[in-house]
């Protein structure tokens, strides 16, 4: 019997999708390099989820509280899959990796770590990152690693919505009022120097072959789609070079420490406890 046939708005359905618990209890064990790659993708999703979730109860409209919570929840789901899978290489759980790694052990990019700012800046960040993620996952579904391919397959459907949500808001803000157009343009300008970091072929990705997607291979299509979305909204694609230090090490980020201090505080007060 298919779960899908019983789907309704009020009934929870697992559908065919994999769950983090299934990954943890399966035989799939990531090798070291694949695990480090999964951690890069998982850390991006986790940091952005953490940032977006603080919009809940603060959004400009009730529908946006729901929408931003939903996107944050999707990203948290992706992070849980990816970190669970990464952890199999070292006998660690998703929570070991999320709560008990220090700043310099995370591999998130600086774009997702940036403060929310106003709604214009949050939408600018969503537009950039969801466009990149959409390109990424639409290729990662062909990964020769079946677990990564399955995670990408689930994430892709969700990221399509994120991209659509961001593009629709970019249009509304870009073509809405003078103020909204100025604010989203400011958002794009303030974040643009972190775009290039998304396309850097950091270790261990080049050595992974068809298991991974080479970030540099996403650059052209991602920038093309971003240009289309930005120009359709009457906005300008910022012209600036990438900020120095695009290596995902955290050595060039001030934000990561604050995010982790808040996220990890309770778990670290009670090491070894179960929740």
């Amino acid at each position: 019997m298919s779960f899908a046939s019983h789907d309704s708005a009020t009934r929870q359905s697992q559908g065919e999708a994999i769950t983090p618990e299934e990954i943890a209890s399966s035989d799939a064990v990531a090798d070291e390099a694949t695990a480090r790659y999964a951690m890069i993708l998982g850390d991006d999703a986790l940091m952005l989820s953490q940032r977006l979730s603080s919009w809940i109860s603060r959004a400009p409209e009730l529908e946006e509280d729901v929408a931003l919570a939903n996107i944050a929840l999707d990203l948290l789901g992706h992070a849980r899959f990816l970190l669970t899978y990464a952890g199999t290489a070292w006998g660690k759980t998703e929570d070991d990796l999320a709560y008990f790694r220090d700043e310099e052990e995370f591999r998130s990019c600086r774009l997702v770590e940036q403060e929310n700012g106003d709604f214009g800046r949050t939408i600018a960040r969503q537009l950039i990152f969801s466009t990149y993620q959409h390109q990424l996952y639409s290729r990662l579904v062909h990964s020769t690693d079946p677990t990564l391919a399955a995670i990408a397959d689930k994430a892709l459907k969700e990221v399509q919505y994120h991209q659509d949500h961001a593009a629709q808001w970019t249009l509304r803000l870009g073509l809405g009022t003078e103020e909204s157009s100025r604010r989203i343009q400011d958002g794009l300008d303030s974040l643009w120097s972190y775009v290039e970091e998304l396309f850097l072929d950091v270790d261990p990705i080049p050595a992974l072959g068809d298991v991974a997607v080479l970030p540099s291979s996403l650059r052209e299509d991602t920038l093309h789609r971003l240009r289309e979305a930005i120009e359709a909204a009457g906005l300008t694609v910022p012209e600036m070079s990438g900020a120095y230090g695009s290596d995902r090490t955290g050595r060039f980020s001030e934000q990561r420490g604050y995010i982790l201090a808040e996220m990890q505080v309770l778990a670290r007060q009670h090491p070894g406890a179960t929740w």
Binding site: P20, L46, Q50, S53, S54, I56, S57, L62, E63, D65, V66, A69, N70, A72, L73, L76, G77, A79, R80, L83, E94, D95, A98, Y99, E262, M263, V265, L266, A267, H270, A273, W275
Partner: peptide, 26 residues
């Protein structure tokens, strides 16, 4: 408490719960 939930699973459940409350408001 969403930002400080002590495990990722609890964080996901709490986020979904607070989102439900926005939905109830709607």
């Amino acid at each position: 408490w969403i930002s400080r939930a002590p495990s990722l699973k609890r964080k996901a459940i709490l986020m979904a719960k607070v989102q439900d409350e926005a939905g109830h408001g709607l």
